[in-house]
């Protein structure tokens, strides 16, 4: 039994999102035919958010809700899965200059996994840092598809993946309700807990999936009326 999870989402717990978790789950239900997502992982910016009990919502909508973090390092932004007390004590998640190699090694030692996200994005993606710094060690996977990518960003991510042999994930990076589930990750295994997710991410048995609508040209743009 496979599982499709949106591994990169931001709720109203992130300062740049106003999206309630319940609205995300309702939107997934509404758009199930286009975006058949089984669950989401909340990856709030620069924090591990323990707030809120989503079990009732999970039951109501039949959608899994897991928690992780998006942190900022000297190699760009990275998702941390399997966050535990040891990690929260070891690292200040609000620090925007975390050392990426230390983070990757230490999180792995403490039972989690770090996945660099939107690596093809200028300034905050790993690709640009790889142009003038040594490659990182012990990277298992990177985010290949990001729902917020501009033209060329996913292509640069694909270049990194091809060159270094990383496993590839996908996530919407949604900050708006209606953008949830646009990109996701299809696991070959059944995932029910964060421990399952970490184990599967390490096992590399997954692929990114793209539910973005095909881009189409604007046929007849209407000029604004001059006043």
């Amino acid at each position: 039994m496979s599982t499709i999870l949106d591994l990169h989402t931001h709720s109203e717990a992130s300062e740049d999102s106003r999206a309630p978790v319940e609205a995300y789950l309702n939107w997934i239900k509404l758009r199930a035919a286009e975006r058949p997502v089984d669950g989401i992982v909340l990856t709030e910016h620069r924090q591990f958010n323990r707030g809120g009990d989503y079990r009732a919502l999970e039951d109501k909508f039949g959608t899994l809700v897991l928690r992780a973090s998006e942190v900022e390092t000297n190699y760009g932004h990275m998702l941390v899965f399997g966050v535990n007390d040891d990690m929260v004590k070891r690292f200040d998640f609000a620090d925007v200059h975390l050392d990426a190699q230390t983070l990757i090694n230490e999180v792995a030692r403490m039972g989690g996994i770090v996945v660099p996200c939107h690596p093809g994005r200028p300034n905050i993606g790993m690709y640009e840092h790889y142009q003038n710094k040594p490659p990182l060690e012990n990277v298992v996977a990177v985010e290949a598809l990001n729902g917020g990518s501009r033209k060329g960003e996913d292509e640069r991510s694909a270049e990194l993946i091809a060159k270094y042999g990383f496993a590839a994930t996908g996530g919407s990076d949604s900050h708006l309700v209606s953008l949830i589930g646009l990109c996701a990750t299809k696991f070959s295994a059944y995932i029910k807990t964060i421990e399952d997710l970490v184990n599967e991410l390490k096992a590399r048995n997954y692929e990114p999936v793209d539910f973005r609508p095909r881009r189409k040209a604007v046929p007849h743009a209407v000029a604004m009326e001059s006043r």
Binding site: N26, L30, R31, V218, H220, A221, V222, A223, S226
Partner: peptide, 15 residues
Amino acid sequence: IGDTLGPLELFVSKD
């Protein structure tokens, strides 16, 4: 919930 607004297609000139 799910209702759409628009889309509104525009062309804003430099002027």
